[in-house]
Simulated assay, not measured.
Amino acid sequence: MNESMEAGMEQYLTAGAAGAVAGLGVAVPLGAVGVLVLQQAMRDRRAGAAAGAAVAVVDAGYAALATAVGPLVAAALAGVEAWVRLVAALVLAVIAALGLLASRRPAPAGTTGTAGTETAAPARVFVRFAALTFVNPTTALYFAALTTAQGDTLRGGAAGAVFTFGVFAASLLWQQTLVVAGGFAGPRLPDRARVWTFRAGYGLVAGYAVTVALPLPAL
């Protein structure tokens, strides 16, 4: 009985550690979303915390889905991956265009936050960043490939839940680290410099959209 309990505990610890590594693996590379989390924290730390939480929630959601149906999803998308990437790229391009346009508008009188951008409510920021992370095909494919490689070890059951929690905890910790860094740097940057960092961030989103879209699907 004790050996069985020890084996089960070891399995859960392994699954949790694997989830933490997976969460850091998808979060630490500072791509477009990470840059935008930093920028949101520079504008408003509370909204930045909401943005980071949204990214972690979606990461965990993809991990949970992948542990359950990752191999089935990969098989279902076989042959149409290019079209899925193209749709995601179009969504990212729209987000980038809206962000760049918003950065050109003067801030309304009496608002706080960065020049050229009005401070947003944390709930709205959460929804926006959840959507931005959700349409990132790299995250979905990352977890699908990872959980498929793990075989039956993580698929379903308690081990899958522990793995998903590890992903969430690691991703949330990293995103909130970015929020602290952005909140520290934001008040110390001149308004003009902050405006250009926001434009650079949305420019990175636009560039990422092009990267996601290529190669284009064959007609």
Rank of each mutant, 00 (worst) to 15 (best):
M1N: 09
N2H: 13
E3T: 12
S4P: 00
M5I: 05
E6W: 03
E6R: 14
A7G: 12
A7R: 15
E10I: 08
Y12A: 14
L13S: 12
T14V: 10
A17R: 14
G19Q: 06
L24Q: 05
L24F: 15
V26S: 03
G34P: 09
M42Q: 12
R43L: 04
D44E: 08
R46S: 10
A47V: 06
G48L: 09
G48H: 08
A53S: 15
V55K: 00
A56H: 02
D59P: 03
Y62R: 10
L65Q: 08
L65W: 08
A66G: 07
A66K: 02
V69M: 08
V69K: 04
V69D: 00
V73W: 13
A76N: 11
A78Q: 15
V84E: 08
L86W: 09
A88K: 03
V91G: 02
V91S: 04
L92D: 01
L92R: 00
A93D: 01
A93R: 02
A96C: 02
G99K: 01
G99Q: 02
L101C: 08
R104I: 02
P108W: 03
A109V: 15
T112W: 05
T112D: 13
T117H: 11
A121L: 12
P122Q: 13
V127A: 14
R128F: 04
F129R: 02
T133K: 06
N136G: 00
T138N: 05
T138F: 12
T147H: 04
Q150W: 08
D152C: 01
T153M: 05
G156M: 07
A158C: 04
T164V: 07
G166A: 09
A170G: 10
S171C: 14
S171K: 05
L173F: 12
L178I: 11
L178Y: 00
L178K: 00
A181Q: 01
G183D: 01
G183K: 05
A185D: 00
P187N: 09
R188A: 09
D191Y: 02
D191N: 11
R192N: 03
R194T: 11
R194G: 05
V195P: 00
W196T: 06
F198I: 03
R199S: 05
Y202C: 02
L204A: 15
A206F: 04
G207R: 04
A209M: 01
V210W: 01
V210H: 00
V210R: 03
T211N: 10
V212S: 10
L216R: 14
A218K: 14
L219I: 09
L219E: 08
L219T: 10
